[in-house]
Design a binder for these strands. Structure first.
Lengths: 115, 115
DNA sequence: TTTTGTGCAAATCGTTTGCACCGTT
DNA sequence: AACGGTGCAAACGATTTGCACAAAA
């Protein structure tokens, strides 16, 4: 398991379970998709990974677990970070009675110009 | 078809295909899930509905197609609008070369205090 | 030998697709 | 008789679960 994670340890990335599976398999260790999912979730629980819901179909995992937001390119299904310097949220909305804010997700959807 | 939509015409709501199916069936018209999906998507294309990706599993459709953001209660899987007065986004990030912004989705995740 | 942890085959479940049916031209 | 639109059964694909196996206690 730790094995698969040398893979994750290099570079900030956004991958889907399937993509990681492919990569891991192609590289060396043959491991089933289910295991990939289990592992990804475990890492996410522990806070090493951040799960990003962006298009309903696939689940993306971000190796950068810090608080930041994302660009998502429709059609290409590419996800990448928005620089922290590009402040986006200025004021948090007041949550309703009895609830507290867990996280704020911002997804800026892009499309190729002209496309 | 227009029939099912009398249902949608009353009140601003956020529903999943499954929920709508249940409602429609329970009420009167027996219609298959597939039809619900087809119809929802058609409405979304035309701009009467707004599709919200919030948790990867389910797809939510918002009868309020205007530009606004959402609260999402984890565990309860409830989605509702953030009042427009609660400004959240102040400055849009600059999109990368060759791309333009299509939409900005903001989801504020909540959890019950103490929960 | 019991317990705890790990990986995966098979099942699940939301969603989509291909096709049959029916009213219209 | 050909055409267009509609609904749905069956297929699909991403994700989860239940269980079998192995190492540790």
């Amino acid at each position: 398991m730790a094995l698969g994670w040398i893979l994750f340890a290099r570079g900030n990335r956004h991958i889907t379970a399937e993509l990681l599976h492919e990569e891991v398999t192609k590289a060396k260790v043959p491991v089933s998709l289910a295991t990939i999912y289990n592992t990804l979730h475990q890492f996410a629980e522990v806070g090493l990974l951040r799960q990003v819901a962006v298009d309903g179909a696939r689940t993306y995992f971000d190796t950068n677990a810090s608080d930041h937001h994302h660009f998502f390119i429709e059609g290409e299904n590419t996800l990448f970070d928005i620089a922290q310097t590009e402040a986006v949220v200025d004021r948090l909305p007041t949550p309703p009675e009895g609830y507290e804010i867990v996280r704020v997700d911002v997804v800026v959807r892009l499309k190729r110009i002209g496309g």
